[in-house]
Amino acid sequence: MAFGPHGFGHWEGGDSPLRRLQEDINRAFGDMRWPQAVEFPPMNLWRGPEGVIVTAEVPGIGLQDMEITVHQNALIIKGRREQPTHAAGVSYHRQEREYGPFARTVTLPFNVDPDSVKATAQNGVLMIELPRPEADKPKRIQIRAV
C-alpha cells in the first residue's frame, strides 16, 4: 500500500523553513540516495483483519485543530499549528518547532464508510480507525466433499 496519490502530503505554504532547509539539503546532497524527510505529520500505518489504523504524531495539535475527512478510499488530514502570540518584549532563544498549515492524503486499500471511522488523540498522537466494510471482507468458501 502506498501513501498517495500525491506521494506524501505536504506543508502548504512553500516558503516554510522546513521546506527551505530540505531544498538546501537536496542541493548539497542531490546525488546522494538519502531517504526523503517525512512530511508532517509522520504517520504509521497498521493493517489487520478488521481494517486499517493510521497513527500520527501531532504534538501540540488537538483533535479540535484538525479536520479529518474520508472520501471513498482517500483519508485526508488537514490542520494548522498556531504559533503562540506573545506580548511585546518576548525574544526567542531557539525556535525548532514548526508552525503553520499542513495537509496529508492517504490512499486506503478499500472504500471506507465515513460514519464508521473513529479518531482519537492522546499525548499528541492521533489514532484513526478505518474499518473495512463487511462487503469488502474476504469470504471463506465452504468446501463440501461430494
Binding site: 504524531e57 501531532v58 504534538p59 501540540g60 506573545h86 506580548a87 518584549g89 518576548v90 525574544s91 526567542y92 532563544h93 531557539r94 525556535q95 525548532e96 518547532r97 499525548n123 499528541g124 498522537v125
Partner: peptide, 23 residues
C-alpha cells in the same frame, strides 16, 4: 525533543515536543 525557548519579562519558557509520553 524539538524545543522552542523564549524569554519574557519575568521568565524563561521552554516548550518541548514529546509525543506519546504520558505526563
Amino acid at each position: 525533543p524539538a524545543a522552542d525557548i523564549y524569554e519574557t519579562k519575568d521568565a524563561l519558557v521552554l516548550v518541548l515536543e514529546m509525543p506519546n509520553v504520558d505526563p
